[in-house]
Design a protein around this nucleic acid. Structure first.
Lengths: 220, 220
DNA sequence: GTCTATATAATGATAGAC
DNA sequence: GTCTATCATTATATAGAC
């Protein structure tokens, strides 16, 4: 009905195609690959988004918004660190999750900001979980959630680079295998760690001048 | 004295320059950047290594060999999972460590094989550590060392992508900051995890049909 | 052994027809 | 609104001079 409505739909279609292609092949995938997926030409994409970087910005804004919204809706009752596991289960989020991994892998200001946002969000979830007693307190809550966020995203990005899924089906299979392989070691690590004594931690705390065990939950 | 000796030295010099440039800028750095660093032309590099991929293979072989050898020499008394932390402390290994991260990030058969080798090596160290009582046993030792290896490398690769160090000094500073930021959360996680009860782990074990707590070290 | 000059291919982006 | 055709740039790789 309204002027420009059809154009907006085309923009959305191209954006979704770009998210899928970039998530599978990485952000260095040529514009022509996105064009083929979207069913139009590379020149048209530049007309629509100004440049390839403009297309990436549009993808970033959309994906990061979707992820953050969905996370808020589903994260109310559990620790934020394993968010990625839950998301990847849902097939509808697979392309977005892959795109996030590729985008942070490519770097840039948008990627840093997204991670910062994820860290701030996860800080809230973790604080609630600590208050509820399901998560142990940390000497540095922000450093912990940043570490957990970064290793999750970095691990996922590494998986995509190593497996190089060639289409949507391979991508979904790759993520499923990834989760299957990491579920046991991650849960073991999350619930008990792997070092049987505190010597390394204590010597580090001594090194940085922090009296050991002060705000620590009992470990044995 | 011998024929081809000078050429061999040139190859080594170019290879080291390539390791430095690729580690700082990623494997998609142009051959001209490597040529400038090595003090010759791009065409000469192609003549020496056949192709850019040939240069990468030479870098992979050398770096992976150096890392594995150095690891064997230094890893006798501790858990293999935190190897990366120790290596990055040593300034001489910084370029190699960065290259490894960039190489696995770029993917390919060499990267997969290197990770497989690292996993097999770490399996030995972990088995020794478990026997010595410094590391808790796992229900799946191979899955654990693979998980720990992958998150360490993936985290490092993500750091390089996010910080994008522009020269050798920034790279070293980036790695130092990386280690400083992760030391506390990693040690906390390694010594005690962060989940205060075993519910998530137990429900997973139930799901996959593994009776909970069978070969587990006491956690509480 | 190294360089300059160039071939070849791919990419992002532009201009103008329809 | 979309395409085709093209430009300009950049990259790897080659050929031949020195």
């Amino acid at each position: 009905m309204r002027v420009g409505r059809a154009d907006l739909n085309t923009r959305s279609r191209v954006r979704e195609a770009a998210i899928a292609v970039f998530g599978q092949q990485g952000l260095d995938a040529p514009l022509r690959a996105v064009a083929a997926e979207a069913g139009l030409t590379a020149g048209r994409i530049v007309q629509l988004f100004g440049s390839k970087d403009g297309l990436r910005r549009a993808c970033d804004d959309h994906v990061f918004g979707v992820i953050r919204t969905a996370k808020r809706d589903t994260m109310v009752s559990s620790a934020g660190a394993t968010m990625i596991s839950r998301f990847a289960m849902l097939d509808e989020f697979v392309p977005y999750l892959a795109y996030v991994a590729r985008s942070v892998q490519a770097g840039g200001e948008h990627a840093r900001e997204f991670i910062d946002h994820m860290v701030e969000d996860a800080l809230d979830y973790m604080a609630d979980a600590v208050a509820a007693g399901t998560v142990l307190p940390s000497r540095d809550e922000r450093a912990r959630v940043r570490y957990l966020t970064e290793i999750s995203l970095g691990h996922l990005a590494l998986r995509l680079s190593l497996d190089a899924p060639q289409d949507a089906e391979e991508l979904a299979s790759c993520l499923r295998t990834h989760l299957d392989a990491m579920a046991l070691p991650a849960l073991e690590l999350y619930t008990q760690g792997f070092l049987s004594d505190r010597r390394m931690l204590d010597s580090y705390l001594l090194y940085v001048g922090d009296p050991p065990g002060q705000e620590q939950a009992a470990s044995a």
